[in-house]
Design a protein around this nucleic acid. Structure first.
Length: 302
DNA sequence: ACAATATCCTGCGAGC
DNA sequence: TGCTCGCAGGATATTG
């Protein structure tokens, strides 16, 4: 879901809202969210009472810095959205079994009424100003971790992450080096977080169109000019998406996503040049591309 | 080594 | 209207 641009926007918004706030309570109806510490009780002990001192991003992870050198990591996965607002907890009956789920509903009169993502809230951090940091997450794939900063940053899943594409220190020669000894298709490689961080299904399609590279192109056949084009397109598309406040979602402060208006191929019928966009499945995901401008070059037959 | 698939979940829209 | 089916923006484990 949120890819690098959307997470970057959320992080920037949250930074304004959260710095200086103290976390006073944690509530959830889905304790599976807690990956570290795994038990709800231990997780609560880890975060409750701590003041938020910063909000950063690494790949698609939201890193909330806490007093005492702790880090609260949230990965929103496909459907997660971190939002700040006001909700009340009620109970909802599930089926005929008599079991109940929690349900958070917007406090009427609050601005949060206007947040569509306010549905499907399953995790809430109570703040000391009466507001809440909430995770809306229809599919419940998100995960949260808390611990000493070094312990979190040294987790395999964080250490293994590829470079940040928008890091100014990430040069073309760094990018080129990533491809050394690699084979396979370009789209799944771009989406591999351990190859390069933050690029998902939407922006891999957009970047490949901008670079005029077929999603199934073989990475070992990309000559240097193609790689250079890919490098430039990657930076340009991601920066533009951030500037336009992302795709399909709203930041927690409400300005609407603007990249949708300039999307070139993802969920588009026609590309900017008017060609029909094709949709195929590539490694289990949908890939959108323009067959006219993104040729799958191959020598002879077989 | 790579590629395709299953998996964690649930709502929604399309098509019948 | 009501049902079933396929689809959904992530990342990993498993299998071929």
């Amino acid at each position: 879901m949120p890819e690098l641009p959307e997470v970057e926007i959320i992080v920037n918004d949250l930074r304004c809202e959260l710095i200086g706030r103290k976390i006073q309570d944690v509530q959830t109806d889905w304790p599976k969210y807690f990956q570290l510490p795994k038990s709800e009780a231990a997780f609560r002990t880890c975060v409750i009472g701590r003041v938020i001192t910063g909000v950063d991003r690494r790949a698609k992870n939201v890193l909330i810095r806490l007093e005492g050198g702790h880090l609260l990591l949230v990965h929103q996965k496909i459907s997660g959205r971190l939002i700040v607002g006001n909700w009340e907890r009620t109970k909802r009956l599930i089926g005929s079994t008599g079991s109940t789920h929690s349900l958070w509903q917007p406090v009427t009169s609050a601005a949060s009424t206007h947040q569509p993502a306010g549905r499907f809230i399953h995790l809430v951090f109570e703040l000391d100003d009466g507001r809440q940091l909430a995770l809306s997450d229809l599919r419940k794939f998100a995960k949260v971790l808390c611990g000493p900063r070094d312990a979190i940053l040294n987790l395999d899943e964080i250490r293994r992450l590829g470079p940040e594409p928008l890091d100014p220190r990430f040069t073309f020669s760094d990018f080129k080096r990533l491809f050394e000894g690699r084979t396979g298709r370009i789209k799944p490689l771009l989406m591999n977080p351990n190859f390069i961080a933050g690029i998902g299904n939407i922006y891999s399609d957009e970047i490949l169109y901008a670079a005029r590279i077929h999603p199934l192109g073989r990475v070992d056949q990309l000559a240097e000019p193609r790689l250079r084009s890919l490098y430039r397109s990657m930076k340009a598309v991601l920066r533009k998406a951030i500037r336009l406040r992302g795709t399909g979602i709203e930041g927690s402060r409400g300005s609407p996503a603007g990249y949708d208006k300039v999307r070139m191929v993802y969920h588009q019928k026609l590309c900017p040049k008017g060609h029909v966009v094709h949709r195929i499945r590539a490694s289990g995901r949908s890939a959108h591309f323009c067959p006219v401008e993104q040729k799958l070059y191959r020598h002879a037959s077989t």
